[in-house]
Design a protein around this nucleic acid. Structure first.
Length: 193
DNA sequence: CAAGAGATCATCT
DNA sequence: GATGATCTCTTGA
C-alpha cells in the first residue's frame, strides 16, 4: 500500500521513525528499484539549526516550505545528491532525510549505477542511496503520491530501532546533539556514521 | 583499522 | 568567494 499524503503530515520525528521498515520505490525507464528503509534523520523546522530552512526561505529550500508528501532533493559537495521527504504543514519547513536502505529489487541495476559496490555498500549512506536509485535534482519537488518515487507499507511490523545524534551537522550548536537519527537495530545496511 | 585529503559545484553573501 | 545533511582512496601502523 502506497503511503498517503496524510502520513507525511504527521510530526517530522514520527514520520522519521515510522519510515523504518517501509519500502522506497523508484520507477525508472531502466526498471524499478526498491529498498527497505533502515536509517532516517529528522530536520524539524526553522528553529532547527541543522535544517537548511533555518537560514530562511530561499530558492533551494522552497520545496521544504511547501505541502507534505513531496521530495526535496539537493546536490552537495559537488558529487552527491540527498533525498528528503517533506513533512508537516504547508509553509512549515521540515523534512526527513533518507540515509540508508537495504536493496530489495533492481539490485543489478543498482550495481550498474554504482560500479564498485558490495551489496552492503550499495545504499548504506545518503549519497550512495541516491546513486543506487538514480535520484538526482530532476526529482526535486516530485510528488510522493505519484508514480515515479514513493514509499510503500508492505505490512511489515515496525522494527526495533535506535536513536542517535545526526551526522555531519557539527555547525548546528546544541541542535547537533538532538537524537534525531533513527536506525533499524541490528541492520547490516545502515551507514557507518 | 583509523585518520586525512581531495574531489567539484549549486547556492547564498 | 566560501562552504557543505558525503564518499572513496591513500597512508601509516
Amino acid at each position: 500500500m502506497k503511503l498517503p499524503r496524510s502520513f507525511y503530515e504527521q510530526s517530522t520525528v514520527d514520520v522519521a521513525k515510522q519510515l523504518l521498515g517501509k519500502y522506497l520505490i523508484r520507477e525508472h525507464t531502466e526498471g524499478a528499484s526498491v529498498g527497505r528503509i533502515v536509517e532516517t534523520e529528522a530536520y524539524v523546522g526553522p528553529h532547527d539549526l541543522a535544517c537548511h530552512a533555518s537560514k530562511g526561505r530561499t530558492r533551494r529550500t522552497e520545496v521544504m516550505f511547501g505541502a507534505a508528501g513531496y521530495a526535496y532533493v539537493y546536490f552537495i559537495y559537488g558529487f552527491y545528491h540527498m533525498l528528503n521527504l517533506v513533512t508537516e504543514a504547508k509553509d512549515y519547513p521540515a523534512a526527513v532525510l533518507i540515509r540508508a536502505a537495504q536493496p530489495v529489487e533492481g539490485i543489478a541495476l543498482m550495481h550498474r549505477r554504482r560500479k564498485n559496490g558490495s551489496l552492503r555498500n550499495l545504499a548504506s549512506g545518503p549519497g550512495k542511496l541516491c546513486q543506487a536509485f538514480g535520484i538526482d535534482r530532476s526529482l526535486n519537488g516530485a510528488d510522493l503520491c505519484g508514480e515515479v518515487l514513493f514509499v510503500e507499507d508492505r505490512g511489515e511490523p515496525a522494527p526495533k530501532f535506535l536513536a542517535t545524534p545526526r551526522i555531519g551537522v557539527d555547525y548546528a550548536g546544541k541542535w547537533k546533539e538532538k537524537p534525531y537519527r533513527f536506525l533499524v537495530r541490528g541492520s547490516d545496511f545502515v551507514s557507518k556514521g
